[in-house]
């Protein structure tokens, strides 16, 4: 299905960016024994679409809107984008998870570009609701983009936040759901069948909701910019593949938290260049 994409978002350029981001994440994976590669590859296009398609920037290029990575274990993709933007330095990434560095396996509030300390699941959306509400009180027009994992939808706290976001009519809150169908242990749609479908639940909670291919940044941008409007918060269910782009990682839970060995690294690089 073809999507109408806003003029500013160039699909070919986005593909090139995402290829470079994945390459950089793999490169960093060789510095450490453990790195959440697959969770980051799952939301690579989502995060790129947020930063490079949706978030408005000021005259100095700095984002006016807020990006909050609720699935903290996906933060490698945010780090490499912040590096590309010049918000983080190459040295920061070189010292990832090392003494003297300031980047860990989960985002830490206070580090430039990081909107909240996440890592424990089910916290980010509640914080995002507070941020969106504050911006509305201040009448700034700032929007909050929150990347949520489908696993986080199992946390009760997420549904408290879903309820309040709609109650407060937070139209400046956009959730991009990384729906890769895998939590740490197993495939969610098999282990927790009664939980689906997700889209209907979001709508029943008073959210505007849409579903797109989560590896098509253009589709994500269009879904958000083409929203019906009004006073509802929006959730975009992005169908994704955990480990997207590297065949042996796709849908394989071990890659939730493992760095490829040198041979696997070479194979991964080659596959990414082909995509």
């Amino acid at each position: 299905m073809e999507h109408r994409v806003s003029n500013a978002f160039d699909r070919a350029a986005a593909r090139a960016r995402c290829r470079a981001y994945r390459r950089r994440i793999l490169e960093i994976s060789q510095q450490v024994s453990a790195l959440h590669v697959a969770p980051a590859f799952s939301c690579t296009e989502i995060t790129d679409a947020a930063y490079n398609g949706l978030m408005r920037r000021g005259a100095d290029g700095a984002p006016l809107d807020v990006f909050l990575m609720s699935k903290g274990h996906g933060c490698m993709i945010q780090y490499v984008i912040l590096e590309e933007m010049g918000v983080l330095e190459r040295r920061d990434l070189d010292l990832y998870c090392k003494p003297g560095g300031r980047l860990g396996a989960h985002p830490d509030y206070g580090v430039p570009g990081i909107a909240a300390s996440t890592g424990s699941l089910g916290h980010g959306l509640g914080i995002a609701v507070g941020q969106a509400y504050a911006e509305r009180l201040k009448k700034t027009g700032v929007r909050i983009f929150c990347v949520l994992s489908d696993g986080e939808l199992q946390e009760g706290s997420t549904w408290e936040a879903m309820m309040m976001a709609a109650n407060l009519r937070l139209s400046n809150l956009v959730v991009l759901l990384d729906n890769n169908d895998f939590s740490g242990l197993e495939r969610m749609s098999e282990a927790h069948r009664a939980f689906y479908p997700v889209l209907d639940k979001a709508r029943a909670f008073g959210w505007e909701a849409a579903e797109v291919d989560g590896h098509d940044g253009g589709a994500i941008v269009e879904a958000v910019e083409g929203r019906a409007g009004g006073d509802r918060p929006m959730l975009v269910t992005c169908r994704t593949v955990k480990g997207k782009g590297v065949s042996y990682m796709e849908h394989v839970p071990i890659w939730h938290y493992r760095s490829p060995n040198p041979e696997e690294y070479r194979r991964a690089l080659a596959e990414i260049e082909e995509n």
Binding site: A115, G122, I127, G130, A134, V142, M164
Partner: peptide, 24 residues
């Protein structure tokens, strides 16, 4: 400036955190 989250304490604290991060 008065928000009642209802019988939902996790969002009460989460929201308060987000509001503080944005200057309230």
């Amino acid at each position: 400036r008065f928000v009642n989250t209802g019988v939902a304490e996790q969002i009460m604290i989460g929201m308060a955190a987000g509001m503080a991060q944005r200057g309230l």
